[in-house]
Simulated assay, not measured.
Amino acid sequence: MELFNTKMLRLTLLAAMSTGLIACHHDDDDDPQITPPPAPVEVTYQVTITNLTNAQPFSPIALALHTEGNFWMIGEAASVELETMAEGGDNSGLLGLSIVMASATGEMPLGPGGNETFEITIEDVTDAKLSIATMLVNTNDAFTGLNAWDLSELGVDDTWSTTAHAYDAGTEVNSEAAGTMPGPADGGVGFDASRMDVDFVAAHPGVVTSSDNLPSSVLNSQHKFDNPVARISVTRTQ
């Protein structure tokens, strides 16, 4: 009887050990696999802007990548941020807009005939829109640039180029009078919060100069400009 009980005990222990080993093996199979998060995908664009005018320096150029919104709309009132840039050349308000996801800015004005190249990178966004804005500083409120241009079809090493016309912010009357323009032709004031014009963005009609029998204008024929006023080239490098 004692021998029988001993055998039964051994069988019970073996069964328990076998069950434990199976359970342990089962637990190992159920351990969750820790997958590292994917590395962020960086998309980089190289952007070159060329000033095509004869005597209209560009204010420091603002570039922004975003997925929604616009810097301006033809026929609609300019934002305060656009007005500030178009009247005084200060682009900090535009680049500080909540829609901006990545940005770059020039440090100095871009002179006539000159060009400047920027590199701008955004993470995990392949459907970005590009906006560019800069003031023609020998004017009251003329600006040029690119508004929410879709870059989603641009593959790595693809290049796209276009030209840009001059726009009127519609916030300051185009008097071309002494003391009203911040550029080197006048050295006058820049941004003025009061709106003294039509209050909507439109194509710029061009400047009126002393050569056009406007004695109060401090501009001359050299400061006139035809469209387009800028050339823009964009290459996706990454």
Rank of each mutant, 00 (worst) to 15 (best):
T105W: 03
F118C: 06
I74L: 14
M135C: 06
V156C: 03
E153I: 08
I74K: 04
V137D: 06
L82K: 02
F143W: 04
L52Y: 02
A55M: 06
S103I: 09
F143N: 01
T53I: 01
A55C: 04
S103H: 10
A142E: 15
N138D: 12
F58I: 00
L82N: 10
L136V: 09
T126Q: 12
L146M: 07
N70E: 15
N91Y: 14
T117H: 04
D90I: 14
P38K: 09
D141L: 07
L63V: 07
G75C: 06
A55L: 00
A78T: 08
S131F: 05
I99L: 14
P40E: 14
M108T: 14
N138V: 02
M73A: 14
L65Q: 14
T84I: 14
P60T: 10
V43E: 05
I132F: 02
M101T: 12
V100C: 09
E119R: 11
W72R: 02
S59F: 02
P37N: 03
A55T: 07
N91F: 11
E107L: 13
A142Y: 13
M85A: 11
Q46I: 02
I74D: 15
N54H: 11
N51T: 01
L130S: 02
V41R: 15
I61E: 03
T84L: 14
D157S: 10
V80A: 11
V137G: 01
T50Q: 06
E123T: 09
A104Y: 03
I61Y: 04
G145C: 05
N147W: 02
E81N: 12
L65D: 13
S98A: 11
